[in-house]
Design a protein around this nucleic acid. Structure first.
Lengths: 356, 356
DNA sequence: TTGAAAGCGATACCAA
DNA sequence: TTGGTATCGCTTTCAA
């Protein structure tokens, strides 16, 4: 097996100095076009395809790699449609800028050990990372940006979760609905599905889910609708398998809620499916409102009314700001309620209207 | 902004040699537990969180990073449910082994330039990569494994696409269906939706889509069903927006096919939705069979009959083989036809049966 | 336009 | 158990 060639060896074979070969790759202006061409050509023949990333970034202090630091595990993020949209947006921009993508999880032990965060030239935090790792990275002084959480020491890209959620709830209350259940995502620390207790309502955090809950509550209060802790479920993971249990509980509780306010589309779509299995007709007997506007939301049998939070655009903006060095202040993306399926019939195509 | 500390500086402050600090991080057995503890503690206080990845991998010749080389663009892969499942599987294993994940696209210009492939300790090729990059990486002699394509110089993880597709088609023909349309994925080079022509049928490649097509054709022949080029659509990308056009064409052609054989679940689910919009009742008036068994397949309004190809497990196995150095031969995963919705009624829960 | 040489930060050998 | 030191592959300044 031919051990990878080094620039030095190549230089030797070509009878030029290492500097010249290096320049051929990195600084075309430092040598004649002719020479450069011939060097690159011979390199290709020899099987030398460019400088080693490790050595180059050691020397230059930059790597051309951007990291996304995920709050949860990698595999969880690959399974989550919202995260996927976000990563699509990030990838859109990185591809244009010729940057490579390193996926890191603040959840993983590996980070404690390998300090892989030292490689990338910049870091996008997606969701609230573990404190220790967060501090560690901030201390490096590398460019970084926060997405979906707030951090006074960092620029951020975010949406107004409070207003978005309030709007979603208002949509229901304005239809005269008085009895709802909230399918909440990660509202408390527990790893199992459960309902909230009164105290949970008075411990608002800055986490997006807490914001959304506050938005729901505000809308309820404004509409004079009572919404108590026992009508609010905690779902620890944005996964169908997990959501199902909470939804079953809610849909079989007496009296059955007229509507489900779901903190994600994954939950909402699962609710739709569960309702179908239980023989509950959506939207006649049960209204469902989601959050996120993932692609599947519009394709569902009963197209989902939800809050569009432009996840892909969020990824684009975060990556753009990071690469442009535009690292101050908070950027709030617009959200809008997408009302769907208000007049769907078999044979007619779905309608959807936006309310902004 | 405090520039990142180096191991050397730390050693100086702590009044020990660099070797000792290095050992504290990498070789606990090389120094007393006491000393090690105190060094690590002081490092934390100083804000030194471990050796730089670039320097360490330059020196050690390994980086703790594994790359997945995607045949298509990053953002496309994030949007594809099958790719997401695969990446979940890869991530499952990498997390256990404390490896970081670098996502590379053989599509991107950036690779030509940055030779980012030099960093990772091993590479998983997902789908047929561009030839040039493929050769380049093989030449490095790094551990690598091929997924979803065949390559005599590389170990691989794959499924038997021919048999799987044949089985899917047989399922239809055994129900007496004689007139079908094939919604094919990437069957020819064109970037637009089109039907095949006769010549395309006689140019079988080793690409998975070609294999699947051959499987369909074999089943048709065995069943005495005619399946000609004009009944076969080419869809260039596994995206709903793209598939829609082909599906519309197929569903509005006269006579309308009794069944759609779809080369992916994304296409099949899109077909289901289109049928709904056109007022065609699935499965009474139109049968649909997919391929992949993505999570949404079982959640659809009409649960989808499809071929399960264990994408996540594929990712797991590929990563496992790579990390275990088990790099010879081809590993074929089992596929199985998952028949769903054969007796679904509103109010009753879905049934599904496996035929292996 | 080219070449010589210093050094990026860490590791691992060998000696003490 | 610890310390000195050559070296990993490359970039870049400076001098020729």
């Amino acid at each position: 097996m031919p051990k990878r060639l080094t620039l030095k060896q190549v230089a030797e074979v070509l009878q030029v100095s290492t500097a010249t070969v290096s320049n051929a790759f990195n600084r075309p202006d430092q040598l004649s076009a002719n020479l450069r061409e011939s060097i690159l050509k011979r390199c290709r023949e020899l099987g030398y395809h460019g400088p080693s990333l490790a050595a180059r970034s050691l020397r230059r202090g930059e790597s051309n790699v951007i990291a996304v630091m995920l709050a949860d595990s990698l595999s969880y993020n690959f399974s989550d449609p919202v995260a996927n949209q976000f990563l699509q947006g990030v990838a859109d921009i990185l591809e244009v800028h010729n940057k490579q993508l390193l996926l890191l999880s603040s959840d993983a032990d590996s980070l404690q050990q390998s300090s892989a965060e030292s490689l990338p030239d910049g870091i996008i935090f997606y969701g609230t990372p573990h404190k220790e790792i967060f501090e560690r990275i901030l201390a490096t002084g590398k460019p970084a940006i926060a997405v979906d959480f707030e951090q006074d020491r960092l620029a951020s890209v975010n949406v107004d979760n409070f207003s978005a959620a309030r709007q979603a709830a208002e949509h229901l209350f304005s239809q005269g609905i008085r009895h709802i259940a909230v399918m909440g995502l990660r509202l408390v620390e527990s790893r199992r599905v459960c309902r909230l207790v009164e105290a949970d309502l008075h411990a608002p955090s800055t986490e997006i889910s807490s914001r959304r809950l506050q938005g729901y509550l505000a809308a309820a209060e404004a509409a004079g609708v009572s919404l108590s802790a026992e009508q609010i479920w905690h779902i620890p993971l944005n996964k169908e398998e997990v959501a199902r249990q909470a939804i079953r509980e809610a849909l079989t509780s007496q009296p059955r809620p007229q509507a489900l306010l779901c903190m994600s589309d994954v939950i909402a779509l699962c609710a739709e499916q569960q309702a179908r299995e239980l023989g509950i007709c959506v939207p006649d007997e049960l209204k469902i409102v989601g959050f996120d506007d993932i692609p599947q939301a519009s394709q569902a049998a009963v197209p989902l009314t939800t809050v569009c939070q432009q996840s892909r655009e969020k990824g684009r903006l975060a990556a753009k700001r990071l690469l442009d060095g535009d690292l101050s202040g908070e950027l709030l993306l617009e959200t809008r309620l997408v009302v769907r399926g208000s007049s769907v019939q078999a044979g007619s195509s779905a309608t959807s209207q936006s309310i902004s």
